[in-house]
Amino acid sequence: MKEYTEKIREIAKRLLNDGTVDMVIGFRKGTLPMMNQPHIATCTDSADELMWDSNCGLNLANYVTDRKEKIGIVAKGCDSRNLVTHVIENKIKRDQLYIIGIPCSGMIDHHKITAMFDTDITSVKESGESITISGNDFSKKLIKQDVLCENCAACTHRNPVEYDELVADLVEEQTDVDPYESVTEIESMDAEEKWNYFEDLISPCIRCYACRNACPLCYCPTCFVDESTPQWVGKSQDPIDVRTFHLLRAFHCAGRCTDCGACERVCPMGIKIREFTKKLNKDCLELYGWEAGLSLDERPPLDTFKTDDPDEFIK
């Protein structure tokens, strides 16, 4: 990962120096282990803070929405797909962007690691495929592959789809994974089991909206949860209100979600929010043969009409 960091800094400095971009969006070391922060570097000094490791799971596409400047942005597979989605949705122009592509080998799941230990973790060091977790009185070595985020473990688009420059050679894509395993499992349940499954899933939700804020797709000026005339969804913790929020949030991402996992990553309660969006992704793939953010020239399925669209649901 050190090579990545150095290469990112080198590219960022070059771009800032020759005026190709006004800023470079990337990550810097966070104050807590496994919590890297988004960082906007506007001068070569601050470009030295840029870095890369396996804790850069947030989606940087979130920070380019409606910007007017020329932007250099560090993008792994999912970020680049979200940048494509942004371009398609006219939230940014492609020629404003200089995409620094990161061939990604997956991000580690901090929920999983925190749950493994009883005491606080003070440092997480990474070398190659192993990760050393240490706290005040312990130190443990883990294999990175075992603690990957669920979406990374089943990711089929690790390489950026759109980029101007790469920091390293492309990595091999995974082909033997099924991202929709849990969806298939839920599909086989009956209505009541499904209802109860989701009831359990969202019961810890505290409606902090972190998932919405971390999501690069959620850029509406006024979110439906903040609308008050009329009020579509109650602000309480009533299970129905919580469910309405999750259903509508997920549905707004239909055909746009790239399964970057930012929502799950930021959830303070560790809710598997992707169970909602994954179903919609699977439907989009099965009904329209669509995966979000793979091409700049194709319109998403929910804003086009084709004569061969499936319509069994209409009588």
Partner: peptide, 10 residues
């Protein structure tokens, strides 16, 4: 809008 459907149901 999906909002209408959910509002109707709830």
């Amino acid at each position: 809008s999906p909002k209408f459907i959910l509002a109707g149901l709830n």
